[in-house]
């Protein structure tokens, strides 16, 4: 064997090892969460709120509902704002320098650690004299999700062929009509992927809602009640031996939600490509 083939063989081996490490870490994560989660999850765990006066008793229903109440409205809001921005970044609406500037700010905002969003919202919250609440948590998650969703939508809108837009314009459509009716439909699979990515990120993030949504043993009754969520519950309980079953159960449910989102985005991406012109 000469030097050239030897080099290739060595690197091939290293590649295999690397792939095994990556797959191995995935297996370990899923194994740990599923094994620990399965042993601590039960009907009571997911249908009850903590017993009054004892945060460690009862179930984690408050966190499940809390997570959904935080992430779903936040994703909806972020999606509404995001699609507006993404459509507006097209050439017809903005000069290129401005859209590139916006893209740059969005990229920075994407990179900003979620804890910074948390502390930013906390600051505003204190300034307005509010306490930690569902509302502030939703706002923090919305801010966190906007750059993700927008940039994802933007990338897929960029791929819409110019000829498609031109044919819409030549039928007499206005810019707004073309954006909302034609471009949005063509870019729909990408838009959907962006929304689901944002939802996944939002539902799993702990740092931004740690101070803003607070902690509560009850299901929030209004926007101004503080609420638990799955990620913050894991963070608060993981190191207490008596709290660990709840942390495991919460991690299990969280992982399942993430898995469902991932599978869903694959299925939907396939289904919604039917109107897409290639």
């Amino acid at each position: 064997m000469n030097r050239r083939t030897l080099e290739e063989t060595i690197f091939k081996l290293l590649m295999m090892i690397s792939v095994c490490i990556v797959i191995g870490s995935l297996v370990i994560i899923f194994g740990l969460v599923i094994i620990n989660g399965a042993s601590s999850i039960s009907i009571e765990m997911i249908t009850q709120t903590p017993t009054p006066g004892n945060a460690l008793g009862g179930g984690i229903l408050n966190a499940i509902i809390g997570s959904l109440l935080l992430a779903l409205p936040a994703t909806g809001l972020a999606c509404f704002i995001g699609i507006g921005i993404a459509l507006y970044l097209q050439k017809e609406f903005t000069p290129v320098w401005f859209s590139n500037f916006i893209r740059f700010t969005l990229d920075v905002l994407w990179g900003v650690p979620s804890i910074v969003y948390g502390i930013f919202c906390l600051m505003i919250m204190i300034y307005l004299g509010m306490g930690s609440s569902l509302l502030v948590g939703i706002i923090a998650l919305t801010l966190l999700e906007i750059p993700i969703i927008t940039r994802y939508m933007d990338e897929s809108i960029k791929l819409v062929p110019i000829g498609l837009k031109e044919s819409s314009y030549s039928l007499g459509s206005t810019k707004f009509e073309t954006a909302v009716r034609v471009v949005r439909k063509q870019a729909f699979p990408g838009i959907l992927a962006g929304i689901l990515l944002g939802l996944g990120r939002g539902i799993g993030d702990a740092a931004s809602i740690l101070f803003t949504a607070g902690f509560s043993n009850r299901i929030p009754g209004s926007l101004f009640d503080s609420t638990s969520a799955l990620p913050t519950m894991i963070y608060n309980l993981y190191s207490l031996p008596s709290g660990q079953p709840k942390a495991y159960a919460a991690a299990f449910i969280l992982l399942m939600i993430v898995l469902i989102i991932s599978i869903l985005s694959r299925i939907l991406a396939k289904r919604f490509t039917k109107h897409v012109i290639r």
């Binding site: 994560i29 990515l197 799993g204 702990a206 894991i234 495991y248 991690a251 993430v258 989102i261």
Partner: peptide, 9 residues
């Protein structure tokens, strides 16, 4: 897509 808190756990 796995949340960071799960990685931490």
């Amino acid at each position: 897509g796995v949340p960071s808190v799960v990685y931490g756990l």
